[in-house]
Design a protein around this nucleic acid. Sequence first.
DNA 1: GGCATTACATACGCCGCGTATGTCGACCAT
DNA 2: ATGGTCGACATACGCGGCGTATGTAATGCC
Lengths: 205, 205
Amino acid sequence: MSTARASGGGGETRTAGAAANRARLITAARAAFAEQGYVAASMDELTASVGLTRGALYHGFGDKKGLLAAVIDQIDGEMSAKLARAREAAPDPWAGLIEEGVAYIRMALDPEVQRIMLLDGPAVLGDPSTWPGEQACLDLTIQSLARLRDDGVIRPVDIEAAARLFNGAALNAALWVAAAQDPGAVLHRAIEAFRTLAEGLLVSR
Amino acid sequence: MSTARASGGGGETRTAGAAANRARLITAARAAFAEQGYVAASMDELTASVGLTRGALYHGFGDKKGLLAAVIDQIDGEMSAKLARAREAAPDPWAGLIEEGVAYIRMALDPEVQRIMLLDGPAVLGDPSTWPGEQACLDLTIQSLARLRDDGVIRPVDIEAAARLFNGAALNAALWVAAAQDPGAVLHRAIEAFRTLAEGLLVSR
DNA sequence: GGCATTACATACGCCGCGTATGTCGACCAT
DNA sequence: ATGGTCGACATACGCGGCGTATGTAATGCC
């Protein structure tokens, strides 16, 4: 057991381990997709940069889109974890919802998130709401809203519809911040406007 | 003056007129980009479908992205006109703002708008807020909001920030409707939630 | 009526993806 | 220990698509 055993039971240990090579490809792809964009990123260069060839890529991920899907899945997991922490750190459910949106806006400052999750991802893989990670994120927002409605905090609106608009407003605020020449200053304005708009859901304010 | 004179003063009238060929290319591109997507659309097939070659394309539009930009500009103009009419048909400024957003949501039912304006466009040409047409659209929303603020209808928020979030919420509602299996039913839910959220801006409701 | 310009068509080279095929090591049963 | 199977890649090939350089007919200008 020199190089780490995989879970299932297959054999590995060629030069660095199959799972390790997979992880290295995903890491390299995150950087390449973020810096050059999906279409401009060459799979020849990418695989060569980690000492492999395109054969490894098509064996492990099927095709170029498969690699993008793997990258998106990884980033999505990291984002979901951050959102959950932001929500749980808030004093009450309503503040949790707001802080979740604010955290989302902040994440869009990351060039990787901008390019991969908000620009190329939807264009290549289609509607983000069908991605497993995004679906899970939306479900969390729906649960938060449902509880707030049951507690009488927000008005009796269509929960799923409100969740989608809520996330959408945060997403667009994020895009605005990301494209600004002075993201730091714009970030504050976006967050304040987001809070104001969100209060449209409240029963009383 | 048999085939229509151009404005500037160049010469044309080869087979159908230069401006006419340009328009035919844009029309064909709208269909091709909407049905196959930007990357999958072949410029050889597209130009051949209107009886030309790729030479005409690179002469008139520079490159493939230039053709997409021309298509987007045309669609953008049509959308702006529709939005303006929706706003002007409303009884008061606040209703005008809401109706503008609702009209935007309805437009996203068009597959051309979905694919070209919301998916491929941003991925290929970058942030939509830098496009001339979108910028004009945002300016109109900003003017509407500024008037409503001066009239004391909405709360004293950051106007540009509110305009961006407002349009963003409408855009995401549009994407949701577009991806739904039953767009007609979802459309109503999206519009209602949009109205509720927008009321967060109002001074009193 | 020469001359420059417009508006294309034609020909060429390059790159990038996907796939088919080969190879080397690891496990597995006997 | 050994023949067979499988996994994890590398290598070789073909195809299509983009951009560009070059050629050419029609047109406007003087």
